[in-house]
Structures are given as C-alpha cells and as structure tokens.
C-alpha cells in the first residue's frame, strides 16, 4: 500500500502546494501533455473552493469586487486547505483570515461582513427546535412558579458586535447603487436567529443584551428582575422583564 500512499500524497501536494514531483507519475505524450492534464485538476480545485466562498460571502465579494475577492480567496485556499467532508464548511475561517490579513486589517468592515455572513450560513442549517413557547404557554404557568422560572433557548441564534454599517451594506449588496462603508458611532450588538426557516436579525439595546445573556445562562425571573433594578425603578422592573420575555417568545427564541 506504500506505493498508493506515496502517490496520493504526491498528487495532493501537487494540488495544495503546486509540487511538480507528481508529473512523472502519470502517463504522458510529453511534458506539455502532462501539465495540461494536471492543470485540469489544479484549476478545478482552486476554482471550486473560490466559488464556494463567493456563494457564502456575497457581501464580501460586493465590497472587494471580483478581482480582489478572487485574489484573497485564492490566498485563503492556499493557506487553509479544507479538512471538511463537505465544502459547505470551507469558509469557516474566512472572517478570521480577513480580519488578520495585511490588506484588510485597516479595513475591518471586510472581516466584519465575512463574520456576519458566516453566521447567516450557520443559522441556515442550524438545528431545528420543534417546541417553541407561545404567549399562551407563558400565561398558563402558575403565578407561584414565575420567580423560579428559567428558559431554554433555541439552538439557532447567534450574536454579533458590529462597528460598521455592515447590515445596511449587506442588504444592498445585490443592488447597483451600493452604500459607502461607514463606521458606526457606537458598537451595535445584533441578535441573529432563525424562525420558521427564515433568518432574522435586529439590534439589541445594552439592557436587553444583559437580560438576554442572563437568561441564556440559566438565570431565573427573580434574578433577572434583580439585574434590571440597576436600570429601572423597582415598580417598573417586573413589567420590563415581562416585556423582554414576551418579545423573545413572539420572535420564536424560547423553547416550551
């Protein structure tokens, strides 16, 4: 089997590192014939992966333009060969790669867009949640149980900090009159989730973020109310807590 092991490693090295050792391993009329035949594989290898990235990151493609996108995608292919069984996951490290890339480290909107788009991809096929809580379920809970009530959230939610008008840019990325990338005055925290197979996203206030994080980490209603006391008068706290809860339930974020 050693012969096959060596052969496969050489072929793969040709694709991944352009090693020319493999050329002698194939039948050929002449060197040009061998190179043409091998080029079919090496070109297809790179182009297939670049195409996969362009499908997962259309907003990044729109920001960079075709040529720059292809160049940076080619570099990503070279530096991070796939170890995934499905090409669907190949772009997993693309946002980090862009954030650290010498061309884009000073243009963080590019990496931020990639991060946003990868979360969209993750939500697209994240696990389903069959038993979503309704407001009727909530009202059916005996009042005596409310204080100790905790919540389980769906699997298909993510959170992202945005420092640029990334969401607006993404919304118009297919249009001809594109927006200029602009930094936001303050960092916006977006909640992203999938409800009934549709991906949703919206900004969250600082208070909602804290409340959401608290509940996601298993905090009960009583401790949520204590948390909210730092922003609201005592008599307003229960209604604020309920309002958050109602919003999350109506948006399909909490399990029954």
């Amino acid at each position: 089997m050693k012969q096959l092991v060596d052969l496969q490693q050489m072929f793969q090295a040709y694709l991944l590192e352009q090693s020319s050792l493999f050329e002698t391993k194939i039948q050929q009329k002449n060197l040009q014939d061998a190179q043409e035949r091998l080029a079919i594989y090496s070109n297809a290898y790179v182009l297939r992966l670049i195409e996969s990235l362009s499908k997962d990151f259309p907003g990044v493609l729109s920001l960079l333009g075709d040529d720059d996108f292809e160049e940076v995608a080619r570099q990503y292919v070279q530096h991070y060969p796939s170890r995934f069984r499905s090409i669907r996951w190949f772009g997993q490290g693309f946002s980090t790669f862009l954030m650290q890339h010498e061309w884009y480290v000073e243009v963080p909107v590019v990496g931020e867009m990639a991060q946003f788009e990868w979360l969209l991809a993750e939500l697209f096929d994240a696990a389903d949640s069959c038993t979503i809580m309704t407001l009727d379920d909530l009202t059916a809970i005996p009042a005596g149980n409310w204080a100790t009530m905790t919540f389980a959230f769906i699997a298909a939610w993510r959170q992202i900090d945005l420092r640029w008008n990334t969401v607006d840019l993404w919304r118009v990325h297919e249009e001809e009159n594109s927006l200029e990338p602009t930094p936001l005055e303050n960092t916006a925290v977006y909640l992203m989730w999938r409800h009934e197979y549709q991906i949703q996203f919206r900004p969250m206030s600082l208070i909602e973020q804290q409340a959401f994080e608290h509940c996601v980490n298993g905090g009960d209603m009583a401790s949520l109310c204590e948390l909210l006391c730092q922003w609201f008068k005592e008599e307003e706290v229960p209604i604020q807590a309920i309002n958050f809860l109602k919003t999350w339930i109506q948006q399909g974020l909490i399990l029954r």
Binding site: Q9, Q12, L15, Y41, Y45, R48, L49, R83
Partner: peptide, 11 residues
Amino acid sequence: GVDGYNVHDLL
C-alpha cells in the same frame, strides 16, 4: 484526499 484533507474532487 489524504492526511485528513479533502480536496473536494473525485480523483
């Protein structure tokens, strides 16, 4: 692919 890589082609 080999050595844990997947070149996403049918070689």
